[in-house]
């Protein structure tokens, strides 16, 4: 098996899966009907992208792996998503801030990944770009509305940004798997996205009258399977059916 490729696909897919799962939690619980539908639509897009990645990962892995076994039958330490996307929905400001900080990175990454020498990754990226352009527009709009809104909404959005900022740096960490695939033009060197990421995010935060955090301390670990306490609860919820009734189908 091409272990590095497999791990790299998981790195890409797990971010979509976990971000999608978090947003999906808002189904029926959104602050308004429109935002509820928007968040679950974005969640659905992300699950669609996850399926494409995991179907490919299953091919690469062989050994009877399927998209479902990859999604539902791994343990916490085997997930490679960044810590950012597993952070819980504390309030709506927190949810959109988390989403925005991920969306900007996601779009920058896909814009490069569409030129990957790996034809499947390139096809998934080209398809996903169209969807993610809508995601970043939605989350960005809400950052502005809440940041430049009432005193209370501003305060909550600022608190969310301050809190989540500490997870942004991990996005640009280059894993061993990625490193081994960059020279062949298959993987993207995430470190090269850092500058434009912070430029884009800072510009929007300023427009939203928010203060850009000056934190020098960043959390990391997700990409190597060391997660915050929140992921375990998310997985317990997500994997419950398959664990309780192995091999069950609809």
């Amino acid at each position: 098996m091409k272990t590095n490729l497999y791990n790299y696909i998981l790195e890409l897919g797990d971010n979509c899966l976990i971000a999608g799962q978090r947003l999906g939690e808002l189904c029926g619980h959104g602050p308004s009907l429109e935002t509820d539908i928007a968040c679950t639509n974005i969640s659905l897009d992300l699950f669609g992208q996850t399926r494409s990645y995991f179907q490919y990962a299953a091919d690469v892995k062989g050994d009877n792996a399927t998209e479902d076994s990859i999604a539902f039958l791994r343990y916490e330490q085997q997930y490679k998503n960044v810590l950012l996307v597993e952070q819980p929905n504390r309030d709506f400001a927190y949810t959109v801030a988390r989403q925005y900080l991920f969306d900007v990175f996601h779009l920058l990454l896909l814009e490069k990944l569409q030129f990957s020498q790996d034809m499947t990754l390139s096809a998934i990226a080209k398809k996903s770009i169209k969807e993610v352009s809508y995601h970043v527009r939605f989350s960005g709009d809400w950052i502005k509305r809440l940041g430049d809104g009432t005193d209370e909404s501003h305060e909550k959005m600022q608190a969310a940004i301050n809190d989540l900022w500490t997870y942004t740096n991990e996005l640009f960490e280059v894993t061993e798997a990625a490193k081994s695939l960059i020279d062949d033009g298959i993987a993207i060197d995430a470190a090269t996205l850092k500058e434009s990421y912070y430029e884009k995010v800072s510009a929007l935060l300023e427009e939203a009258t928010l203060t850009i955090p000056e934190s020098k301390y960043f959390q990391k670990g997700g990409k190597s399977g060391v997660h915050t306490e929140h992921l375990g609860y998310l997985l317990a919820d997500m994997q419950y059916m398959q664990r309780a009734y192995p091999n069950m189908t609809w």
Partner: peptide
């Protein structure tokens, strides 16, 4: 009303 409707 909303950028997202009944389906994606």
């Amino acid at each position: 009303v909303s950028q997202f409707g009944s389906t994606a």
